[in-house]
Amino acid sequence: MTQHGEGELSPEVVMAEMKKNGVTHVVWLPDSETNFLYLLMEADPDLDLIPVSREGQAFSTAAGLTVGGKKPVILIQNTGMMESGDSLRGWGLSLNIPVVMMVGYRGWTRHGVNTDTAATYTERFLNAFGIQYYLVENGEDAPRISVAFEEASRTRRPVAVLVGDEYHGFNR
């Protein structure tokens, strides 16, 4: 088990936010630092994990789940989100799907200087689609995840949570 320092965004905190908001399904494609979250999710009998092999599938899957009254969350990396633009548009926005996508913010750094174009274009991409987003960097930021769920439900639109720490990846 990995030891998490005080204030860090722990997988347990992310799980607690999912449970608090009634998440039933996690539609996901692994990113570089979420394995501990995966192990927690896999062990939870109340969560149904749906693995996809390309991030665009996550939006149409989530749309179908929502039609049937379930509450999915999408867990992907910013690289895959950008590759999924047309699916986000068609299956997310045009069907009014109130889904939260938790997006690993690859390349993001607190000091604002990055060398990874994945980070350079992430917020520009979301702004182009008119997607509201919340940056979550540590445990103190975790309540923003609930804000995102509330906003998605109220606006019937996808809302993004950018995970700026990627569970202790890039800011070490």
Partner: peptide, 23 residues
């Protein structure tokens, strides 16, 4: 029926999966 047309090409199978799992 769910005649949603073609929201974005390539997504019907996953959409159908989601509907089936949810119901």
């Amino acid at each position: 029926d769910l005649p949603v047309g073609d929201p974005a090409m390539g997504g019907h199978a996953s959409f159908g999966l989601g509907v089936a799992l949810s119901l």
